[in-house]
């Protein structure tokens, strides 16, 4: 309870064409902590993550990252939608890692990593390129800088995607099922990188089905079902001694 929260969601609602995906979610992520979001498919995990960097607009409720409202400016009782440029500026300090990597296929690995720091943050090209190489070295891909993404394995592509997110020097990293599109034997290499990040004190919100990762790396585990937070707490409590029957049923199905 020491530092101010990095992420603060209050009463977030979101519907897609009449289907209410998020039904009043409150969530707090403290700086330097790792939060793992678990839940059955269709429970709103991905949508929740996407509202944090405004890839989805919320219908109701407030999203704050590092004290700043996301997507809106508040004056009195009114919320003014921010112009795109300012949304982009706030967003560029939040790294997002997608399930399907979404690397740019026509750019080399190095250019994938260096693009946003140069064009979105306006940083010096030479410094950025040097930093990009360091990051790729950190995720174990120093020898792949000049390759095109399609020539890499899924695990390697996802590690490039993580390096790309890190290149923004983000305050916060969001992971949307980062290992779900990978062959089983490639999951480990991506989780290793993520564990490393967790140890180094990066603030992370991770949507995943990897219970093992949650147990080891998470400070908080959040269980989401039908658009609501059902249960949250330290992994030992939520995973090993869940209070709610729905959590118990889900874990029973996943761990079997």
């Amino acid at each position: 309870m020491s530092a101010a929260p990095m992420v603060d969601l209050r009463g977030v609602h979101k519907s897609f064409g009449g289907i209410e995906v998020l039904r009043g979610v409150d969530l707090t992520v403290r700086t330097g902590e790792v939060t793992v979001v678990l839940g059955p498919s269709g429970s709103g995990k991905s949508t929740l993550l996407r509202t944090i960097n405004h890839l989805e607009k919320v219908d109701r409720g407030l999203v704050r990252v590092d004290g700043e409202l996301i997507g809106y400016r508040r004056s009195g009782r009114k919320l003014h939608e921010l112009p795109e440029r300012q949304i982009l500026r706030r967003r560029s300090r939040i790294g997002f890692v997608f399930q399907n990597f979404n690397l740019f296929p026509h750019l080399t690995v190095l250019d994938n990593v260096a693009e946003a720091p140069i064009s979105a943050q306006g940083r010096d090209r030479v410094t950025v390129l040097a930093e990009a190489r360091e990051l790729l070295d950190r995720v174990g891909l120093a020898d792949k800088v000049d390759e095109y993404p399609r020539r890499l394995s899924g695990g390697q592509q996802q590690r490039v995607a993580i390096a790309r997110a890190l290149a923004l020097r983000p305050k916060l990293l969001l992971f949307d099922e980062p290992t779900s599109a990978l062959d089983p034997e490639l999951v480990g290499e991506v989780l290793d990188v993520m564990r490393d990040l967790a140890r180094s004190g990066t603030t992370m919100v991770v949507v995943t089905h990897e219970i093992g990762f949650a147990r080891e790396a998470a400070d908080t585990v959040v269980f989401l079902d039908e658009g609501r937070v059902v249960e949250q707490g330290p992994p030992a409590q939520v995973l090993d001694d869940p209070r709610e029957p729905r959590t118990r049923a889900f874990l029973g199905a996943v761990l079997r």
Binding site: R89, I94, N102, S119, Q121
Partner: peptide, 17 residues
């Protein structure tokens, strides 16, 4: 692919770029 455009948006890359 829409995902790549979303990735570009998530990285904060300006629209024209």
């Amino acid at each position: 692919d829409q995902g790549r455009l979303e990735a570009a948006a998530a990285l904060g890359i300006p629209r024209w770029r």
